[in-house]
Simulated assay, not measured.
Amino acid sequence: MKKWRALFEKSKHFLLVSSLMLITFCYAMFQGGFVSWFVFFTVSPFLLYAFIFQLVREDIYSIERKIEPSRVESGQSVNVTISIERKTRFPFAYILVEELVGSQMLVQSKIQEKDAIKFVGFKKAFHWSYTLDSLPRGEHRYLGANIIFYDFFGWAKKRIQIEKEQIVLVYPRVHEMKYATLQAKLDVGSMMAPYSIVKDTSMAIGLREYVPGDRFSWIHWKSFAKTQTLQSKEFEDRQSQELLLMLDEGASPLFEEKIELAASMLKAIVQGRGDVSFVSTGTKTKMFTSIQGEKQLDRVMHHLAGVNPIENAEVRLRDQQVFQRVATLLYVTSDISDELLHTLGNSVKSCICFVLAQQTQAQSDVIKRYKHIQVVHVDPTDYYHLFTEVMKP
Rank of each mutant, 00 (worst) to 15 (best):
M1Y: 12
A6D: 15
L7I: 08
L7R: 12
L7T: 07
E9L: 15
L16H: 07
I23Q: 09
Y27E: 04
F30S: 07
F34L: 15
W37M: 05
P45E: 10
Y49M: 14
I52E: 02
Q54H: 15
I63V: 13
K66E: 12
P69T: 00
V72H: 07
V72M: 07
S74D: 15
G75F: 13
Q76A: 12
S77M: 11
S77K: 12
T81A: 15
E98I: 10
V101H: 07
Q104T: 14
M105V: 06
V107M: 10
S109H: 11
K110A: 09
I111L: 13
Q112H: 15
D115I: 14
V120T: 14
G121L: 14
K123R: 13
F126I: 04
H127D: 13
D133R: 13
P136C: 00
H140N: 11
A156Q: 06
K158A: 01
I160A: 04
I160K: 11
Q161K: 10
Q161P: 00
Q161V: 11
K164M: 09
V168P: 08
Y171W: 14
V174Y: 04
M177P: 07
A180K: 09
A180G: 04
L182D: 02
A193T: 12
P194A: 06
Y195R: 10
I197S: 08
T201S: 08
T201P: 03
S202H: 09
A204H: 05
G206P: 00
L207T: 08
E209Q: 12
G213W: 03
G213Q: 08
R215M: 06
S217Q: 12
I219W: 04
W221C: 00
K222H: 02
K222R: 06
S223T: 14
S232V: 08
K233Q: 11
E236P: 08
E242G: 10
E242F: 07
M246A: 15
L247I: 11
E249H: 01
G250H: 01
A251E: 11
P253C: 01
E257W: 02
K258D: 03
I259A: 01
A262K: 01
M265D: 00
A268D: 08
I269M: 09
R273V: 02
G274N: 06
V279H: 12
M287C: 08
S290T: 06
R316Q: 10
Q320Y: 07
V326E: 06
T328R: 02
D335W: 10
S337Q: 09
E339M: 05
E339V: 06
N346F: 05
A357G: 06
Q359T: 14
T360G: 13
V366H: 05
V375P: 01
H377E: 10
V378E: 04
P380V: 00
P380I: 01
Y384H: 06
F387D: 01
K392R: 14
K392T: 12
